[in-house]
């Protein structure tokens, strides 16, 4: 079984995010790392492999050459090989352009399953898996809380507001996993030291057969025209439950004419 994990390099999620006022883009010059949500996708692939299914796990990343360290981090987490599309022509790609590049990389190999983390911690869009699945014309499920393989069928328990949906889909398929699906393990020292020795494929746009006009700024259809902070919350009332919280909440709602 061939599994691809699409991972992203993001600014250190523990550092404060800053926007460049000139470009309206996120400043990425600080410490960058592996998107923490992607670790759940890698962990899930490793668990499939450990369950006895013969599996090759490929790490797929679109990003600058400097993201090689992030590729190694993902490999240390459990990948077997990596495919890294690194080309200056990719700068300023939006979701449409990036999904095009990812789909082109994924089409180069016959992956049975493509996994994503549920979101990237920088842009928080949640939609890349669906965009890539659309381009590949494959079924897609998001927010997977568990995966069960049965031959060439994948059963996905999907987290929804009211509980769980269980979805069955034929492989090949695209799935984005929820951050509740597992607890990713810490990479071991041997895994970290061994990451460099795993096969790394670094490609340019030309190598991957991608038309430069379809990615980067030229291939993007969105422009960030302006940014503003979300409006702050209005005055709030904090109610500690000392046994009378329900009455206090009701009184508050009546007073504000939310209920009559």
């Amino acid at each position: 079984m061939k599994i691809a994990i699409c991972v992203k390099e993001v600014p250190d999620p523990t550092a404060e995010k800053r926007i460049d006022p000139g470009t309206n883009r996120l400043v990425r010059t600080g410490e960058n790392t592996l998107n923490p949500y992607d670790r759940h996708a890698i962990e899930e692939a490793v668990r499939i492999k450990e369950s006895g299914v013969e599996t090759e796990i490929s790490i797929v990343l679109v990003g600058p050459a400097s993201a090689a360290r992030t590729v190694d981090k993902a490999l240390a987490q459990g990948g077997d090989r990596s495919v890294h599309l690194a080309d200056d022509g990719l700068a300023d790609s939006d979701i449409l352009a990036t999904s095009r590049a990812l789909a082109a990389l994924l089409e180069r190999d016959a992956y049975d399953l493509v996994l994503f983390g549920q979101q990237a911690s920088d842009a928080e869009c949640y939609v890349m898996a669906a965009a890539v699945a659309e381009r590949l014309d494959r079924p897609c499920v998001s927010q997977a809380a568990s995966l069960t393989l049965d031959g060439s069928t994948l059963r996905v328990k999907r987290q929804v507001e009211t509980g769980y949906d269980t979805v069955e889909m034929p492989l090949p398929a695209v799935v984005s996993v929820s951050d509740a699906i597992n607890e990713p393990r810490y990479p071991s020292l041997p895994a970290i030291m061994g990451a460099k020795r795993k096969p790394h494929e670094v490609l340019s746009l030309a190598d991957a057969g991608i038309d430069p006009d379809t990615v980067g700024g030229a291939g993007s259809r969105t422009t960030v025209r302006g940014l503003s902070k979300p409006a702050g919350r209005g005055a709030s009332v904090r109610i500690e439950d000392d046994g009378t919280a329900a009455e206090k909440i009701l009184a508050f709602l009546v007073e504000n004419k939310v209920v009559v």
Binding site: T33, R69, D72, K73, A76, Y186, P187, L189, I192, M193, A195, K196
Partner: peptide, 16 residues
Amino acid sequence: EEQDAIRAGVADLCKG
């Protein structure tokens, strides 16, 4: 790069 990875690996673990 290896030293950087060692440090990052330990830092990840310690965050738990």
